[in-house]
């Protein structure tokens, strides 16, 4: 049996060693982690316009992705009144770098509507055609879901979507991120009815009839799929005033 002093000594030494080891490793790997995160973020934005890129994103080198971001993508931060936010104001809001890609859409969800910063990207492809990418955020079954939606130059037809999630069930809710054929359904659907009213996209349980505003649900993931529909419905509305500006 060890006496109390020995136990305390053992625990103190062990805790110190463990703390130093982990803190050291964390500090050592931090730059790598940050670079990985930034790259992951950029890829998530590019996945929305995947159909317009000449090489698949999974085969792109980090340099190539950076290159696309500097040369083919124009980033802006707007608010829900349709005004552009200056770089300084974005930095003041707590995002080092001040670009749209630095804005954490999940943090913005906690702010009031009027204060929300909305990232907005314009991608120009090799032929000079423009597509617009907006970021949206909502709730899935277990936690938040978010994503990027690319719109054609008519600011109506969806060119592609990319969703991500915090804790949806693999194989069920997580399909919103992993299932390519499910995501491809969104391509070509319209956000606005022919008379100009905002209709968004419905996720239809039991299968869509192929209308311009509906896609199939995911079996076993009704709540997550409904979350996607609601996220689209609410998220796009924030951008509406800015869309009006672009159309002019």
């Amino acid at each position: 049996m060890h006496n109390t002093n020995q136990v305390i000594k053992f625990v103190l030494i062990m805790t110190t060693l463990v703390a130093l080891t982990l803190a050291g490793l964390f500090t050592f790997l931090k730059p790598v982690h940050e670079a990985n995160e930034a790259l992951y973020n950029k890829k998530a934005i590019l996945y929305a316009v995947a159909s317009k890129l000449d090489t698949p994103i999974s085969k792109m080198s980090p340099e190539k992705i950076d290159d696309i971001f500097t040369n083919s993508i124009d980033q802006k931060v707007v608010n829900q009144r349709g005004e552009e936010i200056s770089k300084e104001d974005v930095i003041a809001a707590g995002y080092k770098g001040g670009r749209a890609e630095d804005v954490n859409i999940r943090k913005e969800k906690r702010k009031s509507d009027a204060d929300r910063l909305l990232p907005f990207y314009t991608y120009t492809d090799s032929k000079g055609d423009k597509s617009y990418i907006v970021s949206i955020v909502g709730n899935g079954l277990w936690d938040e879901i978010w994503g990027n939606v690319a719109l054609e130059s008519n600011v109506n037809t969806i060119a592609g979507v990319a969703f991500d999630h915090q804790a949806e069930t693999p194989g069920l809710g997580a399909e919103i991120k992993d299932n390519t054929s499910w995501k491809n359904q969104f391509t070509g659907k319209n956000l606005y009815a022919s008379n100009g009213d905002f209709k968004s996209i419905d996720v239809v349980k039991g299968g869509s009839k192929g209308g311009p505003h509906e896609v199939d649900g995911i079996s076993g993931a009704t709540i997550t799929a409904d979350g996607v529909a609601e996220m689209l419905d609410r998220g796009i509305v924030y951008y509406q005033p800015y869309f009006e500006k672009i159309k002019k």
Binding site: H2, F10, V18
Partner: peptide, 21 residues
Amino acid sequence: SIPKQVRMIVQLVIIATLVTI
């Protein structure tokens, strides 16, 4: 050298450290 009184906690710390690594 692990004191018997705290051996489970010590094992847990070792595992948790490795998992964090």
